[in-house]
């Protein structure tokens, strides 16, 4: 089991966003989470990638406890995250950004890995351009490239297809599907029907703070 979440609860002030949400991710799973706006999808994803801490509940990722150092370092090294924001340094070039993050991830041949990822996403021509000069779509691709650097066991993405043209969506969904062949897992949230129809093999709905199978 790559990820097990049991009875996750989270509330903001007294708005109970997540109530006893349960989820299991096995290798080869590609799970799409849907739900109304404000139903807590992003909160759930943030909890799984470690940016938020649940009020109650048990979470184990790669059979380790994500709230203990140094176990969480092991987890962080093996998951990839793309949230609503791209989380890149706007003043640095794409290459500088990717090299920086791959150094922190401890990737040994970080240079060749950077080129590999940018080739895959077709953004090699932007390598020497600062992020703030890129268009929104290319920034999104750059953010996605960052989350792929460590070839993660679990890829957690929050609307990866935002601002992306249909050709690139094709590339994204191919990457999602290829990962499944290598028995990695994806967890994402999306509003684009074509996208999630193609690259999810399991769909879940978040309703009243609970995760329901669809």
């Amino acid at each position: 089991m790559l990820l097990t979440a049991k009875k996750i609860n989270k509330s903001y002030q007294d708005n109970h966003v997540l109530q006893d949400a349960n989820l299991d991710i096995k290798s080869g799973d590609s799970i799409c989470i849907s739900g109304e706006n404000g139903s807590g999808k992003s909160t759930l994803l943030k909890i799984f990638c470690g940016l938020l801490r649940p009020d109650l509940g048990k979470l184990s990722i790669l059979d380790r406890d994500p709230y203990k150092q140094p176990e969480n370092l092991f987890i962080k090294q093996r998951i990839g995250v793309l949230m609503h924001s791209n989380m890149l340094y706007p003043q640095l070039t794409l290459k500088e950004n990717l090299l920086f993050f791959s150094k922190l991830l401890g990737i040994i041949n970080h240079r060749s890995r950077t080129y590999e990822v940018t080739d895959e996403l077709n953004i090699s021509k932007f390598l020497d351009i600062e992020i703030y000069k890129l268009s929104n779509g290319n920034r999104r691709k750059a953010g996605f490239a960052k989350s792929l650097l460590n070839d993660p066991e679990i890829l957690i993405t929050d609307e990866p297809e935002a601002n992306i043209d249909s050709d690139t969506i094709e590339i994204f969904s191919n990457i999602f599907l290829q990962r499944l062949e290598r028995s990695k897992a994806n967890l994402f949230k999306s509003h684009n029907e074509k996208f999630y129809e193609k690259c999810s093999n399991k769909r879940m709905k978040l309703e009243h703070g609970r995760l329901l199978d669809l």
Binding site: C49, G50, L51, Q69, P70, L73, F74, K76, Q77, V81, M83, S85, M87, L88, Y89, P90, F101, L104, L105, G106, K146
Partner: peptide, 13 residues
């Protein structure tokens, strides 16, 4: 730019 979050996601103590 949420870059602090980006570093928090990295395997860095």
């Amino acid at each position: 730019d949420e870059t602090l979050n980006a570093i928090l996601l990295m395997p860095v103590p």
